[in-house]
Simulated assay, not measured.
Amino acid sequence: MLIAILTDLHANREAVTACLAHAAQKKAGRYAFLGDLVGYGADPGWVIDTVMDYVRQGAWALIGNHDAGLLQGDGQSMNPVARQVVDWTRAHLMPEQSAFISQLPYRIEWEDLLFVHANAWAPEKWEYIDGVMEATRSMHATKAAITFCGHVHMPTLFHMSLTGKTGEFMPTPETSIPLNRQRRWLVIPGSCGQPRDGNPAACYATFNTETRDLTYYRIPYDAEAACKKIIDAGLHPSLGRRLLTGN
């Protein structure tokens, strides 16, 4: 089975549409959405409805920190721009959309795979995996052979040997990577809705459960349309402009 992994969708309808269409062309049999369905972008309702539809068809979905922010009132832990978007998003959601967010789990385990938004050691704390040290901590916190994480908006792959030595690998898009069973793996697909590695193309990844092959993808989309929607909605213009640069 081919699993398509999308994370940090951030209410970006154009990017999500492009990634889902590409995954369908690759004949993905299941989808995993690793959280942050909302925040930053101007189409939160559409993105939530789309993920709800996929979940009804058997997809997995997690809660992210921006999703949780909708449920937490004043959002004091966020910066002012992110807090503004949370307040705006909350005002633009239907009750059933908010209810869906409130029921999302922090983690999902399936066979020898773990799906989380932030990390495996404390997924509800939203701490980042910024490098080898945090990746090692996360892999030590689970028995899963492969952990799939969001939260970090740059595609990265970490691997840990049987002796506990952890390495970091920057994946090349559309290059199949065999995840052999002699190592533990931590996969960060990068953000679908707001990439931050200097490349504006949307990110997502696929994993073949039979061959154990992982493939990262960069998908061009109409970032200018997504940018215009953000500005027209009255959200901070920087949130739109960064979609054009990927920074």
Rank of each mutant, 00 (worst) to 15 (best):
M1L: 01
I3C: 04
I3Q: 01
A4I: 00
A4S: 11
L6N: 04
L9W: 10
L9S: 13
A15Q: 10
V16Q: 05
C19H: 01
L20W: 05
A21R: 02
A21V: 02
A21T: 08
A28S: 04
R30C: 12
R30W: 04
L37F: 10
V38T: 15
V38G: 07
G39Y: 08
G39K: 11
G41R: 12
V47G: 06
V47F: 09
I48D: 01
D49K: 08
D49E: 15
T50E: 12
M52G: 07
D53S: 14
V55R: 07
R56K: 15
R56H: 11
R56I: 00
A59G: 07
A61V: 03
L62G: 02
L62W: 03
I63P: 02
H66L: 10
H66C: 06
H66E: 02
H66V: 10
G69Y: 08
G69R: 02
Q72Y: 09
G73D: 03
G73I: 00
G73P: 13
M78Q: 04
M78H: 04
N79P: 15
P80R: 10
P80I: 15
V81C: 07
A82G: 13
R83M: 07
V85F: 05
V86Y: 01
T89E: 04
T89K: 06
A91F: 06
A91S: 06
H92D: 07
L93Q: 11
L93G: 14
M94W: 14
E96C: 09
E96M: 06
E96K: 00
S98E: 09
A99P: 09
F100M: 04
S102L: 03
Q103P: 02
Q103R: 00
Q103F: 02
Q103D: 10
Q103A: 12
E111F: 10
D112F: 05
D112W: 03
L113S: 00
L114K: 07
L114Q: 12
V116N: 03
H117A: 07
H117I: 08
W121M: 03
A122F: 13
E124K: 12
K125Q: 14
E127K: 05
V132M: 09
M133C: 04
A135K: 04
T136S: 15
R137Y: 06
R137A: 14
S138D: 05
A141V: 14
T142F: 06
K143P: 06
T147M: 05
C149M: 01
G150F: 08
P155V: 03
T156D: 11
H159M: 10
S161E: 13
S161V: 00
G164K: 01
T166A: 13
E168D: 00
E168S: 05
E174R: 14
L179S: 05
N180H: 12
N180G: 06
N180P: 02
R181E: 14
R183E: 09
R184I: 14
L186Q: 00
G193N: 15
Q194V: 13
P200V: 13
P200L: 12
A202S: 13
C203L: 03
C203N: 14
F207T: 00
F207Y: 14
R212D: 13
T215A: 00
Y216A: 05
Y216K: 02
I219T: 06
P220T: 02
P220N: 04
E224D: 13
C227I: 05
C227W: 09
K229E: 13
D232E: 09
A233V: 03
G234K: 11
L235W: 02
L239M: 13
R241L: 12
R241Y: 15
R241I: 00
R242T: 12
L244Y: 11
T245R: 11
G246D: 08
